[in-house]
Amino acid sequence: MRVVSLAGFLFAFWLALSGHYTLLLIAAGAVCAMLCALVGRHMRVADHEGHPIHLWRGTLTYYPWLVWEIAKSAWAVTKVILHPRLPISPTMTVVRAGQRSTAGVATYANSITLTPGTITVGVSGNTLTVHALMREGAIDLEGGGMDSRVTRFEATA
């Protein structure tokens, strides 16, 4: 099931990139997509963790929210960079990821890194070490708003 969907995605990618629709090229694309999907199965990357299609419903609400968060924090970082005195207060902190699956924890860690101003520097189990450019960013994360968002996103499966 996941292998079939991976092959489908790869084939769509081929069609989008090629732009030439002759029988030979389409057939070559289909063969390549299937081969790659089979290799993916052999390498065990076409599984729950590597190809998490079961989360598609959550992405519709989670990613727009994340984009808005990115815009807000990027603006905050921009103001700091352009401030003549460069008012940074770098902070290291530890936050707990409340997600149950590895895909959930990875999504949370990626979201932290993606928002400018906070970077996940270490992951061990459900504990994330975070470096924040400003103290407020670290305290916001400790509040756990984003964590519960990602947990809800994970639960939509």
Binding site: I88, T93, V95, R96, G98, R135, E142, G144, D147
Partner: peptide, 21 residues
């Protein structure tokens, strides 16, 4: 070594731990 204004790794347990449980 990261240049830090504050290191909350030790005491963050109070703020970070109860979330998500």
């Amino acid at each position: 070594p990261p240049l830090l204004a504050e290191d909350r790794r030790g005491k963050a347990g109070a703020g970070g731990e109860p979330e998500g449980s």
